[in-house]
């Protein structure tokens, strides 16, 4: 049960996008905020949601946005050279250091035929807009 959570330092993100160039900053912001003592809520919906299934994790890295396509291979190579964690590893690390909740959008799950058991282990709950708004209240909200 999602408990009442207003009045704390808080960062909530609606993760709508499913391309790696958007997922990476979600992981970076989530882990940075968690380390700084923020409560973090990640609400994955639409194209974002497809990346937090077990299959979605196996298929990482997700494709890059068409606008940055030419930069993709060089960026990936650099990240590997830096041993920079993937976005979902950053989220897993964030969960270890702070109060981080990962939510899946129930309506999108139905659109894509995704079952609860298909979701990656770091997903906490299947929720809807009312829960997101309740948890996000009074904090920073980003639509990514």
């Amino acid at each position: 049960m999602a408990e009442k959570s207003e009045g704390k330092k808080k960062l909530s993100m609606i993760v709508f996008s499913g391309t790696i160039d958007k997922l990476m900053p979600v992981g970076i912001l989530a882990s940075g905020a968690a380390a700084a003592g923020y409560e973090v809520n990640l609400f994955f919906t639409f194209w974002g949601l497809r990346n937090i299934t077990k299959q979605g994790i196996r298929n990482q890295p997700a494709p890059i946005d068409k606008n940055y396509e030419s930069m993709g291979p060089a960026m990936m190579a650099k990240m590997q050279e830096m041993k920079y964690p993937m976005w979902y590893q950053l989220i897993q690390q964030a969960k270890e250091v702070g109060e981080v909740k990962v939510y899946a959008c129930s309506t999108t799950m139905e659109f894509f035929g995704i079952k609860r058991e298909d979701l990656a282990e770091f997903v906490d709950d299947v929720v809807g807009v009312a829960t997101f708004l309740d948890r996000a209240e009074g904090g920073i909200v980003l639509f990514v």
Partner: peptide, 15 residues
């Protein structure tokens, strides 16, 4: 039957 119904209606009731 929506899996979000429980958390969502709980949140709605609080609000």
């Amino acid at each position: 039957t929506d899996p979000a119904a429980k958390p969502d209606i709980e949140a709605w009731a609080r609000r």
